[in-house]
Simulated assay, not measured.
Amino acid sequence: MNTFTPSSTNPVTMPPLDLAVALYDHYESIDEVKHYYGLLAIYALARAAELIHDNTALLNRCRNILKRFPLEIKHPNYNFINYRIGGIPRAYMLYRGHMTDEATRIYVHEYAEQLMHSPRSDSGVVLNMRRQNEIARQMVWIDVAMPVTPFLLFAGLTFGQPDWIDEAARQTFLHYDELLNPDNGLLHQCKNFTVPGAVTDDHWGRGNGWGLIALTELVQYLPADSPHRRQAEQYFVDHTRALLPHQSPRGLWRQEIPLPTAWEESSGTGLILYGYGVGLRLGLLPADQFRPAFDRGIAGLRQHAIKADGSIELSCPGCRCPGEGERRGTVAAYVEDKQPYRDEPHGAAPLILALTEEARLNQSTNA
């Protein structure tokens, strides 16, 4: 298995919001931003724009990016229908009042309704729209919490639809209940992909990040009197605490989180740090324990995962129950069969999200 030795590279010292935009610029320069990880990058860019004092130009840029969906995009084969209209960032921009055009309102409402009526597994989780045969109907994977929960949450808040908000929370809780390892508080990625009723052996870094970002949006945006708030906060605190002991000496979390010989992975680290930043701002996480971990993580990303030209390192390639035969879903398959490379596209959004929380925490500290 691979281990990484400390890098001699100097850390990137650019201010966090400038660096966040630079990461997006670089990503956009090498690929069309449209896949689910691209939509999350647009969402992260919108969050960065809100923190910039003179943000009109950047918010306009976000609007123009999203107005290309769905008619000006050559769409790939999506797993979830809401990707077609810009997914999470389209719903967020509408919720925040940054996109109030009638087309956006129609699109978000229509696709939230479609998502509410999409097929479910026997346990109630939303199904991948391309995998609805009898075997696939029982497949559960934590990645699904990311596209479903925030989209329904923002749409429900915008249109005053409590059933959409209820379903947003329900989908995340269902995934945690199916995939949580009670022995260590970490998530497995998949269930029913290998043997019926079995979870994969992993505690994959980005998979834990996918679950945590869904909880992070719930604790940020659920109304104070929501019947789901107490459960969302408890799940969030429990998961963030379970992750804390596994931060590496360089400040990152690993591809297989509890395995000290696994390689350090940046996209999962970025998502975890985003959750930590939000938890610190909301007072859900004690600063004496979590602020040092957050600061070490940001420093680690700046030194080992982010380059001065906006390129990124150490992000895991697309990964869903890797391996073949008896190897499928094993820790070895997650660690050995998946290797990072420069500018792996899943990594941009998590790093931008982490940087937006660096900026927010810096602003609150300096206020």
Score class of each variant (00 low, 15 high):
residue 242 A to I: 03
residue 54 D to P: 02
residue 9 T to M: 06
residue 118 S to Q: 06
residue 151 F to C: 06
residue 106 I to D: 03
residue 314 L to D: 07
residue 31 D to I: 13
residue 185 G to L: 01
residue 139 M to N: 07
residue 152 L to F: 05
residue 215 L to W: 03
residue 278 V to N: 09
residue 82 N to P: 01
residue 52 I to D: 06
residue 325 G to P: 06
residue 308 A to I: 03
residue 151 F to N: 01
residue 352 I to E: 09
residue 42 I to F: 09
residue 266 S to Y: 11
residue 324 E to L: 07
residue 132 Q to N: 06
residue 150 P to L: 04
residue 216 T to N: 13
residue 120 R to V: 00
residue 171 Q to W: 03
residue 254 R to Y: 04
residue 71 L to W: 14
residue 239 H to Q: 15
residue 171 Q to I: 04
residue 117 H to I: 00
residue 126 V to C: 12
residue 122 D to I: 06
residue 54 D to H: 15
residue 363 Q to E: 15
residue 223 P to E: 04
residue 39 L to D: 08
residue 35 H to Q: 15
residue 163 D to Y: 11
residue 5 T to E: 14
residue 287 A to G: 13
residue 64 N to A: 15
residue 229 R to V: 06
residue 5 T to W: 13
residue 4 F to L: 15
residue 125 V to P: 01
residue 282 L to M: 10
residue 188 H to Q: 08
residue 12 V to I: 07
residue 28 E to C: 09
residue 158 T to E: 09
residue 148 V to P: 04
residue 303 Q to P: 03
residue 101 D to T: 12
residue 301 L to W: 05
residue 79 N to L: 11
residue 98 H to P: 02
residue 365 T to N: 14
residue 335 V to N: 06
residue 36 Y to P: 02
residue 334 Y to N: 07
residue 169 A to Y: 02
residue 367 A to Y: 12
residue 361 L to M: 14
residue 359 A to K: 14
residue 29 S to G: 05
residue 301 L to M: 12
residue 165 I to E: 05
residue 334 Y to C: 05
residue 183 D to P: 00
residue 11 P to G: 11
residue 161 Q to N: 14
residue 293 A to R: 15
residue 107 Y to R: 13
residue 297 G to I: 11
residue 85 I to R: 06
residue 229 R to D: 05
residue 296 R to M: 09
residue 219 V to D: 00
residue 149 T to P: 01
residue 326 E to W: 03
residue 14 M to W: 05
residue 14 M to S: 13
residue 346 H to M: 08
residue 223 P to Q: 05
residue 90 R to E: 04
residue 299 A to I: 07
residue 192 N to I: 09
residue 56 T to Y: 12
residue 109 H to E: 10
residue 57 A to K: 15
residue 191 K to E: 05
residue 26 H to P: 03
residue 68 R to L: 08
residue 29 S to H: 08
residue 348 A to N: 09
residue 87 G to A: 11
residue 268 G to V: 10
residue 259 L to M: 11
residue 281 R to A: 15
residue 190 C to F: 03
residue 213 I to Q: 08
residue 359 A to C: 14
residue 291 R to M: 10
residue 251 G to S: 12
residue 264 E to H: 14
residue 259 L to C: 13
residue 118 S to K: 04
residue 13 T to S: 14
residue 165 I to W: 03
residue 272 I to P: 12
residue 332 A to P: 00
residue 67 K to D: 15
residue 195 V to C: 04
residue 170 R to I: 00
residue 86 G to A: 13
residue 107 Y to K: 11
residue 164 W to H: 10
residue 260 P to F: 07
residue 65 I to E: 15
residue 302 R to P: 05
residue 232 A to W: 01
residue 351 L to T: 10
residue 234 Q to W: 07
residue 366 N to Y: 13
residue 288 D to R: 14
residue 271 L to K: 07
residue 18 D to M: 12
residue 83 Y to V: 04
residue 130 R to W: 07
residue 160 G to L: 04
residue 173 F to Y: 00
residue 29 S to M: 05
residue 93 M to V: 10
residue 52 I to S: 07
residue 225 D to G: 06
residue 29 S to K: 09
residue 186 L to S: 02
residue 124 G to E: 00
residue 213 I to T: 10
residue 116 M to I: 05
residue 194 T to S: 08
residue 187 L to W: 01
residue 16 P to W: 10
residue 196 P to K: 06
residue 56 T to V: 11
residue 15 P to E: 10
residue 1 M to P: 15
residue 358 E to S: 15
residue 154 F to D: 02
residue 206 R to P: 12
residue 180 L to D: 03
residue 257 I to A: 14
